[in-house]
Design a binder for these strands. Structure first.
Lengths: 236, 236
DNA sequence: ACCACAGTATGGTCAGACCATAGCAGGAGG
DNA sequence: CCTCCTGCTATGGTCTGACCATACTGTGGT
């Protein structure tokens, strides 16, 4: 019965229909970030479903970083289309890290890959060097591990932004956010941040010099310094 | 008023509280995939909220690929913890592509990066060559562009799986799924798939030979062949 | 031992109500 | 004419209670 006949119509829940309708509307009408969706009650009536179903669809869209709901009245109220893949990705990673679906090692590995790529790209265009320098100064002025990590995040985020690829930048930001806790621990364990500083300086120099290969190598070495337990350098 | 005093308690919606509670429960009780969450009505009573709020929280968790709801009765019914980051990522990418938040170019670029990395990794361990060979055979037997793309997806997915990093594999699968439409168009536009086949053979050979550098290069050239408009080879 | 049927816990959906919020419109007072 | 205040109203947020479809569970008959 199962594999053979019929495929009994694949139950689709109404909120999924609503989702599909909204999605269709977005693509067909060419809606983009900033545009408003109809009010919940209005949508419910238009689609002939209950408000609950519309709300569940909204919640999904909000989770995916596509809309943002505001109460009250006026042009900014209601469901407004946004473009925030970051928060969605961050939440996803955070939950799956908690669920032990993913291990820290895998996240760091991914960061390693992305960041090398982003640094090469940044070096190729010599972009975003001011932001990098600012973050570097911030780290020098930091007095606690948390503060240091904040600016460290800004530094690596600047690398991602400099790559010019928003998807890569979003993934990278999410990875960094999801790992914030581990980072603080890592910095505290290290104690001395001079090694990290040297790594940052080297990365910045490579990007300013427009040397993609050196930039990638610098990032690789830097991450190995930052997470020695996860990156036992085989070359030693 | 706004920036100065007070910070007026940052309204948190009840379904967000529910979300936090469930998340806490997951991490504290060490729940993993396969475990069951309490029933909606039960959760609502325990947390002192309405079932609607619980349902909205469930919808979010479902969207993030953390739970899966089944109707009916028995051990498999109710909200079961799952571990499917893929579908969540796919939906996210698809919607943002539709929203024009992300451009195809950016997605392909990201694939380029990930796939090179995954192929190097696969070559380093010489893993998953059977799956690659199977997919290759499937492509040879394909009679339509859709069929070809199906097996092509399987091929690239096998590369990702062979990398041994589930996060990278999940991202890669999602990228591939989100781009399915473009892929079919690209294959139809090309008409002839012998170039693509040659690329696949070269990738497989490099992985079997355990040559990471060659594997990465093969992937790079292959993608350039598959999407010539997006990868105008500057070396020509 | 098997099978049919009623029972029941589950998610899915709906309708209707009420609340808090925040812009908006119109009047009171200068 | 302008300013300020106040009530109005559209919006999302929440709750209650009901009903349905589904799929297992247990019971009783054969």
């Amino acid at each position: 019965m199962d594999g053979s006949g019929w495929r009994p119509v694949k139950r689709t829940r109404t909120f999924e229909d609503v989702l599909a309708q909204i999605e269709r509307r977005i693509t067909e009408d060419g809606l983009t970030a900033g545009d408003r969706l109809p009010a919940e009650r209005q949508l419910a009536e238009q689609l002939g479903v209950s408000r609950s179903s519309v709300r569940e669809a909204m919640r999904v869209l909000e989770t995916l970083g596509v809309v943002s709901s505001q109460v009250g009245r006026g042009p900014d109220a209601g469901a407004v289309l946004t473009a925030r893949p970051d928060s969605a990705l961050t939440g996803l990673l955070r939950l799956h890290l908690g669920l032990a679906t993913l291990e820290p090692r895998e996240v760091i590995d991914t960061r390693h890959m992305i960041e090398q790529w982003a640094a090469s790209r940044a070096a190729a265009t010599r972009a975003g060097t001011e932001a990098l320098a600012t973050a570097l100064a911030g780290m020098d002025a930091a007095r606690t591990a948390e503060e240091f990590v904040e600016h460290d995040i800004a530094f690596h985020r600047a690398i991602a932004d400099a790559s010019g690829n928003r998807l890569v930048a979003a993934i990278m930001r999410s990875l960094r956010d999801a790992m914030r806790r581990f980072s603080v621990e890592a910095v505290e364990r290290l104690g001395d941040t001079t090694v990290l500083r040297a790594g940052h300086v080297r990365i910045l120099a490579a990007i300013e010099a427009g040397d993609p290969g050196e930039a990638a190598a610098a990032v690789s070495d830097h991450l190995a310094d930052a997470y020695p337990s996860l990156f036992p350098r085989p070359s030693d």
